[in-house]
């Protein structure tokens, strides 16, 4: 291994490469479980590492590097859902006669389970949620954040969060049951 040069740019990049070795799989697992698409998950992990390297001063040593990197990635995941919501709005505008609740409407179709594993079924069910319901569920249940923190992070009221979580829970429950996962 070559000696690390002293220029700040080099050492940050070396840190970045080291972080990729140490935490790359963990961050990929995190993103994949939440958005259910491996290519998108890879992209979000890449963006997170680049953001981390560019803004290393953001790491103040108050948490572990993994926690810090995960918080950057969580922000990317939320941005991803936000993009999905924008795309969804466009679709709704172009078909505005379809005034249906997307969270419920999308949970209707059955996923072919033959040979698919549990995580694939869960991922598909999560993807069928409206992005608004999915991001609430991901932050509250999968990340285990408190309700106040989720409301703050998403900029929504407690009432709105409650509605989103209710929709997410029941649409997911229904979808999993349709695909053979009974509670």
């Amino acid at each position: 291994m070559d000696t690390i040069e002293n220029s700040a740019g080099e050492s940050i990049v070396d840190d970045g490469v080291h972080w990729l070795d140490e935490h790359g799989d963990y961050l990929f697992s995190y993103a994949l479980a939440r958005i259910g698409d491996s290519h998108q998950a890879e992209d979000l992990v890449q963006e997170s590492f680049l953001a981390a390297v560019r803004g290393k001063s953001g790491f103040r040593g108050e948490s572990t590097v993994r926690t810090w990197l995960t918080s950057i990635l969580r922000r990317k995941v939320i941005d991803y859902f936000r993009g999905q919501r924008r795309a969804e709005k466009k679709i709704k505008l172009s078909a505005c006669d379809l005034a249906v609740d997307t969270a419920e409407a999308r949970s209707d179709d059955r996923i072919p389970v033959d040979g698919l594993q549990f995580s694939n079924v869960f991922d598909q069910c999560l993807k069928k949620l409206s992005p608004a319901a999915a991001e609430a569920f991901v932050l509250r249940i999968m990340d285990g954040l408190g309700t106040n923190e989720v409301c703050r992070t998403l900029g929504i009221s407690a009432r709105n969060l409650s509605v989103r979580l209710h929709r997410a829970r029941f649409a997911l429950k229904e979808c999993l049951e349709k695909n053979g996962f009974h509670g």
């Binding site: 697992s29 995190y30 992990v45 995580s119 999968m142």
Partner: peptide, 12 residues
């Protein structure tokens, strides 16, 4: 189920 999904390791 959601928690066990989020614990599942994957590899880049």
């Amino acid at each position: 189920i959601a928690l066990s999904r989020s614990d599942q390791p994957a590899t880049l």
